[in-house]
């Protein structure tokens, strides 16, 4: 099977920061707003190099989202940034009315999503954001898997006219996708060919899916790995083509199984080609304090749990 090399662990939010730095040079209409988390969002370079295009809103996310919506009027491309919890749940109505319903070209960029935020605990670990955002009509929802993909996505969404939710995270994780690779919104990446099972993963779980595929191969199980970075619009064709071959699916995400990628995939399958599916996701629960690795282990979001889920789904097939 195709092997992927980790070029070094690094956080996806740094990919966002690197993408913003580049956008600062190439897109003069890009502006950044931040609610008192400039360092956490890795926006220091953007702020330093483009102070006139950096808007510190203070700890006031509702105002930040509203301002971002207003800033599009006159042609700016606002990137509104904070932690995923405060970028979605806290400001859902502002996003709904002033951004999504109003059709504004706002990029909501959210770091520290999911359990891997770690020790700060459940108040900050949102596991519902993908669901909240994907339910909004017209909202594009993207959850890249590593530094390179996050950087590419950050840059790509500037050239897309419409509201986008871009979700990334805090911890250092393997960086394995192509450097400066092309990012196509809504287009799944076919990472590994396989014939027994389709593993569909997003965000931090993609690396674990690749590790799982390797372990499964040693046991003679051929797993196909698909990286869905765009949860909405979903690349239905990529999913259905793979399932046609493998006849079973495991979906993997750092999110509640309710409202997440797995549910979107299940919807596609139910309508077109019903097959058994296992969900690697949190099970309708809040998180808690702990190290990212401990949390991913406890809540069943790692390589081992993906292998187990594959075995479960194969047993049903």
């Amino acid at each position: 099977m195709k092997k992927f090399t980790n070029s070094g662990n690094i956080d996806t939010r740094s990919g966002f920061g690197a993408g913003m730095d580049e956008l600062g040079k190439t897109h003069e209409d890009v502006v950044a707003l931040c609610a008192d988390l400039t360092g956490s969002l890795k926006l220091n370079d953007f702020e330093k190099n483009h102070p006139e295009r950096f808007f510190q809103t203070g700890i006031a996310e509702a105002n930040m989202i509203g301002m971002a919506a207003g800033m599009t009027i006159g042609g700016k491309i606002p990137y509104a940034t904070t932690f995923a919890n405060f970028a979605t749940g806290r400001v859902y109505d502002q996003i709904r009315q002033s951004v999504a319903y109003s059709g504004k070209n706002v990029k909501i960029c959210a770091s520290h999503a999911g359990l891997t935020l770690g020790e700060d605990g459940a108040t900050h670990q949102i596991l519902e954001d993908l669901g909240l955002m994907k339910m909004l009509p017209g909202m594009t929802v993207i959850n890249p898997c590593d530094f390179n993909q996050t950087k590419a996505a950050t840059i790509a969404i500037a050239d897309y006219d419409g509201p986008v939710y871009l979700r990334f995270g805090r911890p250092s994780v393997p960086n394995f996708t192509e450097k400066d690779g092309k990012f196509e919104i809504g287009k799944a990446l076919h990472l590994v060919d396989g014939s027994d099972v389709t593993i569909i993963a997003t965000g931090h779980l993609v690396w674990h899916a690749l590790e799982a595929a390797e372990q499964l191969e040693e046991k003679g199980i051929s797993a196909e790995v698909i990286n869905i970075h765009t949860i909405k619009p979903l690349d239905e064709e990529a999913i259905l083509n793979s399932v046609k071959k493998t006849r079973c699916v495991v979906t993997c995400e750092e999110h509640n199984y309710l409202g997440g990628l797995g549910e979107s995939v299940a919807g596609v399958l139910a309508k077109n080609d019903p097959v058994y599916q296992e969900f690697i996701a949190t099970n309708d629960t809040f998180g808690e304090s702990g190290t990212p690795a401990e949390l991913m282990e406890k809540y069943g979001l790692n390589t081992k749990s993906i292998v187990e889920a594959v075995n479960r789904v194969l047993a049903k097939k």
């Binding site: 808007f55 509203g66 919506a69 006159g74 109505d93």
Partner: peptide, 15 residues
Amino acid sequence: QGLSVALGAAQTKKL
């Protein structure tokens, strides 16, 4: 929500 939106539009006018 309107004042935030108006502020954003005002900042864009300045830019």
